[in-house]
């Protein structure tokens, strides 16, 4: 698996798109620091961009990579390699190269700005960690979709729909449920609802870390009570890990039964 990972990773590291992605974050980081001068405000703006953009790029890159390397995958399948190591290697290659673009692209400007002397370093690290988690999750979901759909147009369609659902529609539905059942106690439900969507979970995690939960009213207080504690933090990270592990397991399972 490590060999496949190595080759996929280097293959991607040499592609133009990795540089575009890296350059985008580099530019974003520089511009935000230059215009903002306030590190924790820059972190909030970054969060808003990352929460939406990272899943989108992870999904599209994952689907694109899978379909583009289809013939190459067939070449690998004829070699004495296990199927699980081929697909996990490719998945990790994509996910790691995206994560590195993200971490380096945002990290470099912030390091130059003087991150290490700033108190925002933990908020910033949390941002990068959740960004990496989101990359791992959405690339895995993208691989799942691509593995289940021979037709690339359909695969792309489903991938975009998945992103749209988790990034936007889910929130809408969630909010509607909260309004419809506002007469009932909803704190448990909203906690569970947040846990079930990795994008919401990451957003809540970062927002509460930034200590602006006062703006969120009563629900914010409950969330703060939960996510603010180390127990809540651990549960959240466990949830994010589950979100990575389940799709990865399905990649292994699905690839074992697939015809090429």
């Amino acid at each position: 698996m490590l060999k496949i990972l190595k080759y996929s990773f280097f293959d991607l590291m040499r592609s133009r798109w990795s540089y575009v992605y890296f350059a985008f974050y580099l530019l974003l980081g520089l511009v935000l620091l230059f215009l903002n001068n306030d590190l924790s405000k820059a972190v909030i703006t970054l969060m808003n961009v990352i929460i939406v953009l990272v899943p989108l790029i992870g999904t599209i890159f994952g689907v694109m990579y899978y379909y583009n390397s289809k013939e190459f995958t067939e070449l690998l399948l004829a070699q004495p390699l296990k199927r699980s190591s081929i697909f996990l290697g490719q998945y990790l290659g994509v996910a790691l190269s995206l994560s590195i673009s993200l971490v380096l692209g945002l990290g470099i400007p912030f390091v130059f700005y003087g991150l290490f002397e700033s108190s925002a370093i933990w908020d910033f690290s949390l941002l990068l960690i959740t960004g990496t988690f989101l990359t791992l999750i959405f690339t895995a979901l993208a691989f799942n979709i691509a593995l289940s759909n021979e037709n690339r147009i359909k695969g792309f369609g489903y991938a975009i729909l998945l992103w749209l659902f988790l990034a936007i529609i889910y929130d809408g539905l969630f909010l509607m449920t909260l309004i419809m059942f506002e007469d009932y106690p909803l704190d448990k439900l909203s906690l569970v609802g947040t846990m079930l969507n990795p994008i919401d979970l990451s957003r809540t995690l970062i927002l509460l870390k930034l200590d602006i939960s006062a703006l969120l009213g009563y629900t914010g207080a409950i969330f703060k009570q939960f996510f603010g504690t180390s127990f809540g933090l651990i549960v959240s990270f466990v949830m994010l890990t589950v979100w990575v592990v389940l799709p990865v397991l399905r990649i292994v399972f699905k690839s074992r039964k697939k015809d090429f």
Partner: peptide, 16 residues
């Protein structure tokens, strides 16, 4: 997957 050490395969479409 080990038996494939003993097979050389030329696929139909060479897309690398």
């Amino acid at each position: 997957s080990n038996y494939r050490h003993k097979i050389d395969y030329l696929p139909q479409i060479a897309n690398f």
